[in-house]
Design a binder for these strands. Structure first.
Lengths: 471, 471
DNA sequence: GGATTTGTAGTTCGACATTTT
DNA sequence: CAAAATGTCGAACTACAAATC
C-alpha cells in the first residue's frame, strides 16, 4: 500500500492538523486520549501506523512513536510490532474491582468476598485480644514490619503451605493489594514489563497501569502459564517480572501444577525475572490438591516475592497479609513498606495471630471450604460444565459464554436483572480474544439460598440471550 | 575555559571510556550510580558539564543529558541550569525515618513518636468497641473508603480545625504516610515536580524519590514558604504541586501564618498547582495559636488534598488518617485508595470513632499538649534559644549547630554516646545549605525524666564538640 | 548588561527486530 | 523465503532558557 493511501483508504483516526500545538507529541497524545475517552475511538480500533500518520501530519514518524508511547503507558492503547497499534479493550473505563454499593435487591456475583458467614468466630477472637495484658504495646509505632510474635505466627501459618523462611525475610502489610503496591514500588520502575496470564487479576491490571508498568500477556493451558511462551516473550522484549496466582488463578480458577511450577521457575531463573507470587488461595489447595507440593517461592526464593493474605482465608475486614522475600529484595521491600504504610496496625495482626495460635483460624478455613464445596456443587447443578478443569473449591467460577457485544453493556444488563457479574473483558491483560466468559463469584452472597436465586436469574437470562448453549 | 581543558584541569569524574557498553546512556548512568554509591563521588561534588564530558567521551552531549537525567530521577544528583550538576547530599544512603530497633540503653530523640503515655485511654476504648453489637459488620469488605459513621466522626473531628466538607469528598486511609502514597499515585506522574520547603519531611523526600517525583526547594521565613519564591520557580519550571505542613512544619517547627496561607493560596490558584496539605499537627495549633484561622483546604478546596492523621493526636499504632479532597480529585483519589489499600481496617477506624464521639480523644489531646508543654519547657532550660519562633508545643525542636562535617557520621557519634538524633541533612530537599541543625524529638521517650537524660547527653557532647556556642 | 556556560526539551535520524504477506 | 509493513530504541541535532561572569 502506498504511503499516501489515506486519500483512498481513510485512516481510522485523522487528528485535526490545526488542533496540534507544540510540543507535537504531547498535544497529539492528549488528542488521542480525548478521542478514546469520549468513545470516538472504540476499543480494539486499529490506529494508523506510525509512518502513515507521520506522513499525514508531516512530522517524523518517531514523534508519533512518542505520542503513542505516552498513551500506551497509560494503558489506553497497545502496540504489536508488525501488526500495528490498537485501542485497549479496557481503555475507556476503570476496571478496578471493589465492593461498591449496589442495590440491596441485587445479588452479588461480581466482587469476590469470602463467605463472611464465618466472621462471628473472628469477632470472638477480637474480644479475647482485648483481654491481653500487653494490649497497650500494640498501640505504638514499634516494629514497623510486624511484631516478632505476629511474624512467627505468620510463618507457622504459611508452613502449612510449604513456606520455609526466617522472620527477617518477611513483613506484615495491610492486605494483598497493599502488598502488590509495595512490591511494584519497591522492585519495578515505570516502563518495566511484567508477564501475566492472558486473563489476570483485574486489580493487578489497574495498579500496573497506575504505576506505568506494562503487562505482557502470556498464553496458558489447564496447568497454568506456558513456560515456552514466557521464554519466547523474554527473548523478544525486556521483561522484568511475572505475576502468578498458582493456587487458584483469578479469574480462570486454573491451578498451576507441580511440574509446571518447576518449568516456570526454570524460565524465571534463566531470564532473571522477579516473580510476584500471589498465593491468597493457598489454603484451598495445600493439603487438598494431591498434586500440590510447595509454592514457587521455595524453588526460587531469591527471585520471588511471596504474598499470603488472610483476607480470603480468615477475614476480609482485618487487613493483614504476609510478604516473604529473599535477601536481595529485603532492603528495598522494607523501605517500600515504610514509605507506603509506615506500619500495619498491630491490633489487626494480633487478632489474626490469636486466631492462628488458638487453632480457630483453621476452623474458619474448614468452614469456608465446606461452604465453597456446597457453592460449587450448586453452581454445577445450574451449569454442568463437563470440561471444568479449574479448582473444585474456587470462590468463583469462569463461565464461557457466546457473545460478541460490549462487556460493560452486558454487565449493566445483568445489573438491571438483579445480579452483578463481571465480564471477561475486565480481566484482559492485553488484546481482545475470541472467547468470552463471565466470572461468577460464589462467596459473596449472605447465604447459599441467595446464591441459588442469583444463579437462577443468571441462567434464565443467558438462555434468553442465547449465550449459554452448553446442555 | 576551552572545551579540551580536561587535560589541564582534570574533570571531577572521568568515567573509563572502555568500560562503556551500548547503550551508552544507560551504561554511563550505571557507572555514575556505582561511583556515587561506593562513595567515590562524595555528596555535593560537581560533575563535569554535559558538553565537556561528551567531548571527553566523544558522544553527543544530549547522551550525557540522558544519563544524568536517569540519575537525577533516582535522586542521586541534581542539576541547576547555568551552574552545573552535583551529587545529592543524601545520595549514598536512605533517609527514610522509621522506628528501627535501637539499643534499649539509647534515648530516642530521633524518630518523633507522640507521647505514648496516653495509650491506656485508647486501650479502654478498644475494649468498649468489642462490646458493640455490630462488631461483625466491621469485619467485611464493605465501604472501602470508610463506614459512613466513621467518616462523620472524622468530619466532626476536623471541624474543630476549620474543615467543612461532605462525606462524599473524603476517605479513611491507613495513616498519613499511606495518604501521601495514595495522593502521589493518584494525582502525579513520574517526572512531575512538587515544591517543598528547603527542609521538609524526610519521608516525603523518600517517597517522592520512589515515585520519581522531583522536589523543588523553595525558601521560606518564620511565617512559612515564601509566595514570591514559589511563584518564581513556577515561572522557571513546570511545577505540578506543593507539599506543606502548615500547622507545624516538620522539621523546622515553622507555623504558616494566616496571611501567608492566603498569599500562598493565591499563587497556588494562579499557577494551578495541587496542594498536599499534611495537617497532622492541626490539633496543636487550631484553638491554641491566636493567629490560626483555617486550613488552606478551605481557601482552595478544588486544588487541595487535605490529610489529617490521628497518629500524632490520638494514637500512633492505630493507623487511621482522613483524606479530604475536592470534587475533581475524587475519582482518581478513590481509585488510588482501592489500588493501594482496598480498604482500611474498620476495626481501627471504629476505635478512633469511639474515642472521638466519647470525648476521650479530646482528653488524649489535652494530655499530649500538657506533655508537649512540659517537654518544650525542659528543652528550653537546656537550650535557651532566644530566637525560637516555631511552634511552642512542637513534638520536636530544630536546634542550630555549627558543623561542617558529614551528617550521618554525626548521627553515629551521638548514637555511640547513647542518644539518637537526626541531622538536618536528612531533611534537605535539594542542595546543601550553610546552616546545620539537629532535629530533637521530644515526644519519644518513655518519660520526661528520660528526655532530660537525653538532652543532658546532647548538651554535653555539643559543648565538647564546640558545636553549640549559644549561651 | 551582553557574552558565555550550562542544562532542558522537542524533534529527527538511522539501525534493527518482528510480523505479515 | 524474501519483501514489505510496522514498531522499538539509541543517539544526534537544534532551539532555547537560565545562571554566571
Amino acid at each position: 500500500m502506498p504511503i499516501n493511501s489515506f486519500v483512498d483508504y481513510p485512516m481510522s483516526w485523522k487528528p485535526d492538523r490545526d488542533a496540534l500545538k507544540r510540543p507535537l507529541y504531547l498535544s497529539l497524545a492528549l488528542l488521542l486520549e480525548h478521542d478514546i475517552a469520549s468513545g470516538y475511538l472504540a476499543p480494539s480500533t486499529k490506529l494508523p501506523p506510525q509512518r502513515e500518520l507521520a506522513d499525514f501530519l508531516d512530522v517524523n514518524f518517531t514523534t508519533i512513536t512518542r505520542a503513542y508511547k505516552l498513551c500506551e503507558l497509560k494503558g489506553l492503547i497497545y502496540a504489536v510490532t508488525g501488526s500495528g497499534t490498537f485501542v485497549s479493550p479496557n481503555a475507556a473505563r476503570s476496571i478496578t474491582i471493589s465492593k461498591d454499593k449496589i442495590s440491596s435487591e441485587c445479588v452479588e456475583l461480581g466482587f469476590v468476598a469470602s463467605f463472611e458467614q464465618t466472621n462471628p468466630i473472628v469477632a470472638l477472637a477480637a474480644k479475647r485480644v482485648m483481654e491481653k495484658s500487653y494490649l497497650e504495646q500494640l498501640l505504638d509505632y514499634n516494629d514497623p514490619t510486624g511484631k516478632p510474635h505476629h511474624k512467627i505466627a505468620g510463618l507457622n501459618w504459611m508452613r502449612a503451605f510449604g513456606i520455609d523462611a526466617d522472620i527477617e525475610n518477611m513483613a506484615i502489610v495491610s492486605g494483598a493489594q497493599n502488598a502488590l503496591a509495595i512490591t511494584l514500588l519497591a522492585l519495578f520502575e515505570p516502563g518495566n514489563r511484567i508477564a501475566v496470564d492472558i486473563y489476570t487479576y483485574a486489580n493487578f491490571i489497574e495498579i500496573s497501569k497506575m504505576f506505568r508498568i506494562q503487562l505482557v500477556p502470556i498464553p496458558g493451558d489447564e496447568c497454568g502459564m506456558l513456560p515456552n511462551e514466557l521464554d519466547n516473550q523474554c527473548l523478544q522484549l525486556e521483561v522484568h517480572g511475572v505475576f502468578l496466582m498458582p493456587s487458584c488463578s483469578n479469574p480462570t480458577t486454573v491451578v498451576v501444577s507441580k511440574n509446571r511450577k518447576k518449568e516456570l521457575a526454570a524460565v524465571i531463573r534463566k531470564r532473571n525475572l522477579i516473580l510476584i507470587e500471589d498465593d491468597i488461595y493457598a489454603f484451598l489447595t495445600a493439603g487438598f490438591n494431591a498434586d500440590y507440593d510447595q509454592p514457587m517461592f521455595q524453588l526460587i526464593p531469591e527471585q520471588t516475592v511471596y504474598i499470603c493474605s488472610t483476607s480470603k482465608s480468615v477475614c476480609s475486614g482485618l487487613r493483614v497479609a504476609y510478604i516473604v522475600f529473599g535477601e536481595n529484595f529485603k532492603e528495598r521491600m522494607i523501605k517500600a513498606v515504610f514509605n507506603i504504610n509506615v506500619k500495619t496496625s498491630s491490633l489487626d495482626a494480633e487478632i489474626i495471630t490469636e486466631l492462628i495460635l488458638s487453632g480457630k483460624a483453621n476452623e474458619v478455613v474448614e468452614e469456608k471450604k465446606q461452604l465453597a464445596q456446597s457453592a460449587n456443587h450448586i453452581f454445577s447443578e445450574f451449569f454442568p460444565l463437563s470440561f471444568h478443569t479449574g479448582h473444585p473449591l474456587s470462590f468463583y467460577r469462569w463461565l464461557p459464554i457466546s457473545d460478541n457485544g460490549d462487556g460493560s453493556r452486558m454487565e449493566s444488563y445483568f445489573l438491571n436483572k438483579g445480579i452483578r457479574v463481571f465480564h471477561s473483558d475486565r480481566f484482559l491483560s492485553g488484546a481482545s480474544t475470541q472467547d468470552k466468559f463471565l466470572r461468577i463469584a460464589l462467596a459473596s452472597t449472605n447465604s447459599l439460598e441467595e446464591l441459588k436465586r442469583g444463579l437462577e436469574i443468571l441462567k434464565e437470562n443467558l438462555r434468553d440471550l442465547n449465550m449459554y448453549d452448553i446442555p
